[in-house]
Nucleic acid binder design. Structure first.
Length: 430
DNA sequence: TCTGGGGTCCTAGGACCC
DNA sequence: TCTGGGGTCCTAGGACCC
């Protein structure tokens, strides 16, 4: 049985408020105080909203077409997602955080855990206020900070700091009395605990576990049986026992996926092949950037499960005879995969490629064990990667990926790439 | 007309081996 | 009559995260 120790170092989670919506505002101050929403790929669902948009009743995950009335009525500003912009702003924020702690874990595009080992409780709050103000001043993005003894508790503090204006964006529950922590846990619904999703919420509520506090009192054995060791870890963390450590080194990916919904339905194998070829190219680029080669490639496709038209979904796992990082070679296997699973007569909505079974690439060995051909392929690939990096990802591409790509993703309301494209530098008015 | 994309971890169960 | 048991590897599926 694990017990709580006295001196866990404080951990803070810094989380950007309504990140994508806030990014759109950075270069467009007219949007301040106005409702803003940002759409997923293909302009499908809402993935980020400003507080004003939440206030008129729009929710995360709503399909755009279902909230069109609200959008019109309240004059909501709608944007297609602009990942290049968000990624660049994210990078600036993370760099800023690294000036405040030597130990930063970039957890997602809009969130980081930072270790504040060595700080006294009293100074922690002030320090985190300074972080918050610096990010706002330098980058223009509002963030909230939660500080606690474990990551899971820091997420709870963060959430309360964000929701309740009286905390002004920073809540520090590190080192306070247990009965005070309990008060915060009692006002946190169990569904808002990090690690508790839809399914577990249903199960927990059925068993009369309604708040984060209730969950700390749950029976360990029951939790492990019903929620695996992951669930048990969450319970310990809520009790103040750290089980999830801070990981500042970025681990290599164990899987790389590239998949997309089409901008319209696709019926022909030729167009499916074009898209799979393009997605294989993208996935292979990502894989090479971490110097991996893969043994396994999965191709999958599916119709639209929301439609009443005939449904079909399938995937195939292709084993490569030799681990490969060559786009040319991977495309040829992916095409064989498509031929295996494609069926005529369906309206396809989405396809994707997943790479797994990674091994480190060691080019020096290529010549020893493999044909001359492979070395040549590697050179072509390297050249393409370099040119595409330098001149943009569409400089050189495989003809098999299609040229017109009329099946491509919809993105009709995209903001300019203010920070990464000279053509789009914002104008300064005198 | 219109419902995202990219990841992680854990577990059960089958195949295979001795 | 009676059909082991333990270990490992792999995969599919289900849960979660943002």
């Amino acid at each position: 049985m694990k017990t709580k120790s006295q001196n866990n170092p404080p951990v803070a989670v810094v989380d950007c408020n309504n990140f994508y919506a806030s990014c759109e505002r950075v270069f467009n101050p007219k949007l301040l105080g106005k409702p803003v929403v940002v759409l997923s790929n293909n302009d499908g669902i809402i993935v980020a909203l400003s507080n004003e948009a939440k206030a008129v009743g729009i929710k995360m995950g709503d399909p755009l077409f279902k909230v069109q009335d609200l959008v019109k009525k309240h004059d909501v500003n709608v944007f297609s997602s602009n990942y290049v912009l968000y990624g660049d702003i994210s990078h600036r924020i993370m760099t800023t955080l690294e000036q405040f702690s030597p130990n930063v874990e970039i957890y997602s595009i809009d969130e980081a855990f930072i270790s504040l080992e060595g700080f006294k409780r009293k100074n922690l709050t002030e320090y985190c206020r300074e972080i918050r103000e610096t990010v706002k001043k330098w980058i223009g993005i509002p963030v909230s900070v939660g500080i606690a003894e474990t990551k899971t508790l820091s997420k709870i503090a963060n959430r309360i700091a964000k929701k309740n204006p009286k905390y002004d964006g920073v809540l520090n529950i590190y080192g306070i009395a247990q009965n005070e922590i309990d008060e915060y846990l009692k006002i946190t619904d169990v569904s808002d605990v990090w690690g508790v999703g839809h399914q577990y919420t249903k199960l927990l509520k059925k068993n009369n576990i309604n708040t984060a506090y209730d969950l700390t009192k749950a029976n360990d054995k029951w939790v492990k049986n019903n929620m695996t060791v992951m669930g048990l870890r969450t319970v310990y963390e809520l009790r103040g026992i750290p089980c999830v450590s801070l990981e500042s080194a970025v681990p290599d990916k164990k899987a790389i996926i590239c998949s997309r919904s089409f901008g319209r339905y696709v019926e022909t194998i030729e167009e499916i092949k074009e898209s799979v070829s393009l997605f294989t190219t993208r996935a292979a680029e990502k894989m090479r950037s971490q110097n991996s080669a893969c043994r396994l490639l999965t191709v999958f496709l599916r119709t639209n499960p929301f439609k009443k038209t005939p449904q079909y979904h399938n995937g195939v796992l292709v084993h490569l005879p030799v681990p490969s990082d060559s786009t040319t070679e991977m495309i040829s296997y992916a095409m064989k995969g498509v031929e295996q699973i494609f069926r005529k007569g369906y309206l396809y909505q989405k396809v994707g490629v997943m790479l797994t079974g990674f091994e480190p690439v060691d080019r020096s060995q290529l010549g020893l064990f493999d044909s001359e051909d492979r070395i040549k392929m590697a050179k072509v690939t390297e050249t393409m990667d370099r040119l595409n990096l330098e001149f943009g990802s569409r400089t050189l591409f495989y003809a098999s990926s299609g040229i017109k790509r009329s099946w491509g993703t919809k993105s009709d309301m995209k903001s300019p790439q203010y920070t990464t494209d000279w053509e789009n530098l914002p104008e300064v008015s005198a």
